[in-house]
Amino acid sequence: MRWPGRPGAAGHWTEQPGSGGPQVPAAPAWMRWLPVFYIAGILVLEPLTPVQWPVSFLLIALPVITAFAYGPVAVGAITAFTIVFEGILAGTPCCAGRPVSYVWERHYVTAYVCTALVGILGTILAAHRVRRERTLATVRFVAEIAQRVLLGPVPHRVGPIQVEALYLSAAAEARIGGDLYEAVPTTYGLRLVIGDVRGKGLLAVETAATLLGAFREAAHDEPDLAAVARRVETSMNRRSARLAGSDMGERFVTAVFAEIPHRHLVRIVNCGHPPPLLIRPDGVTELETADPAPPLNLGMLLTQAYQIDEYPFRPGDQLLLYTDGVTEARDSAGAFYPLPQRVLSWGPLPPRELLDRLHHDLLVYSNNRLHDDTAALAVYHMPD
């Protein structure tokens, strides 16, 4: 399919730096200010209520409210402040609406004791929350490191070709999944792969690692793109045979292999994967193949050699490879994400800006509810 477009110019971009270490996310601003608002509300209600309604007793809950956003030291300090503040309210007739002081009245003494007990529980709660948050931050950091090892940085410039990558994990707590990509400069030109492993979890990551390891070797050794795909398929089959006792044999990978040789064309081998988009100043084209191969690890279904499709790839053209996490994103009405139409409406963009725009648009379209991992590669042929 093809949609008419409009011309535009490419621009420049900068690489976004990664995190330097585990970082515990700060609590939302409203949660940090909640203890202040709570105290202010009690100060407003206290002089307005009858003597029989000692609203200051509500301060007992203040340590627990503080524990949701602050650490144990802060909770302990708030507990001491709360007990003192309760005594001030009880002993200030003009502010509490009482003719006499009630500082040591038994109900207020009971309130002091209860506040201290709640403060102890709040301190324990805050310590547990901080420990869990640090553990979660460490897990996310390790997952990010594993993701970088698995999907190392792509070469941003290979001759006249510029490459940028995008990866989004549907699991916010562990930013690693079964989507994969790679770009390898070789003597045969720039070779790329993007794929999507069936399933989730550790086995999916192991499958992705197997595929990427095979591709990185075959990309340098095999002179033909179809031979690269066949060698990767062989590696996948060998791993399945070694893990016959698990469900590894049922796991397969949809993938697209691409090759940009040292002239103005691109070769594509599609193994059951969504077709890439070829973005030109005059339109957007889906590079569908007439005879796609089955997904990797299902090579026994292939009765003939892998089909290689060739397309012109001239200066100013851009190739967008993506996984089905993009096209299967849904809006509130359940409609799938219309990728070609969206890309067309944006006009020509440089690779980094294109992927950033795609990232933002996917989150807006799905109302921040991506249900599948997402990966994308943008490959731009710079003008001569």
Rank of each mutant, 00 (worst) to 15 (best):
M1Y: 13
M1C: 12
P4F: 11
R6S: 14
P7G: 07
G8L: 08
A10F: 14
A10C: 12
W13T: 11
Q16M: 10
P17K: 02
G18A: 13
S19F: 11
P22T: 07
Q23I: 15
A26S: 15
A27K: 03
M31S: 13
L34D: 08
V44K: 00
E46I: 01
E46Y: 00
L48E: 00
T49Q: 02
P50R: 04
P50H: 06
P63E: 07
F68V: 15
F68E: 12
A69D: 04
G71E: 07
P72H: 08
A74I: 10
A80M: 13
T82H: 03
I83E: 00
V84N: 09
G91C: 06
R98F: 00
V100W: 07
Y102E: 01
H107P: 05
V118A: 07
G119N: 08
G119E: 05
I120P: 04
L121W: 13
L121G: 13
H128S: 10
R129T: 10
R131S: 15
R132G: 08
A137W: 06
E144T: 10
I145C: 12
Q147A: 14
P155K: 06
H156Q: 13
V158T: 09
Q162G: 10
L166H: 02
S169V: 09
D179C: 08
D179F: 09
Y181M: 08
E182M: 11
T187Y: 10
L190R: 01
I194L: 11
I194G: 02
V197K: 01
G201H: 06
L203P: 13
A204D: 04
A208D: 02
A218R: 02
D224F: 08
L225T: 01
A226M: 06
A229P: 02
A229R: 00
A229I: 05
S235E: 12
M236I: 02
M236G: 01
A241H: 13
S246Q: 09
D247M: 11
D247F: 11
R251F: 04
V253D: 01
I260D: 00
P261S: 05
R263V: 12
R267K: 14
G272V: 04
P274T: 09
P275A: 13
P276R: 07
G283M: 05
L296S: 01
L301A: 09
T303C: 12
E310P: 08
Y311V: 08
R314W: 10
L319H: 00
L321N: 07
Y322M: 06
T323H: 05
T323Y: 03
V326C: 06
V326A: 05
R330F: 09
G334W: 05
P338Y: 10
R342A: 12
L344P: 04
L349A: 07
L349R: 07
L354P: 03
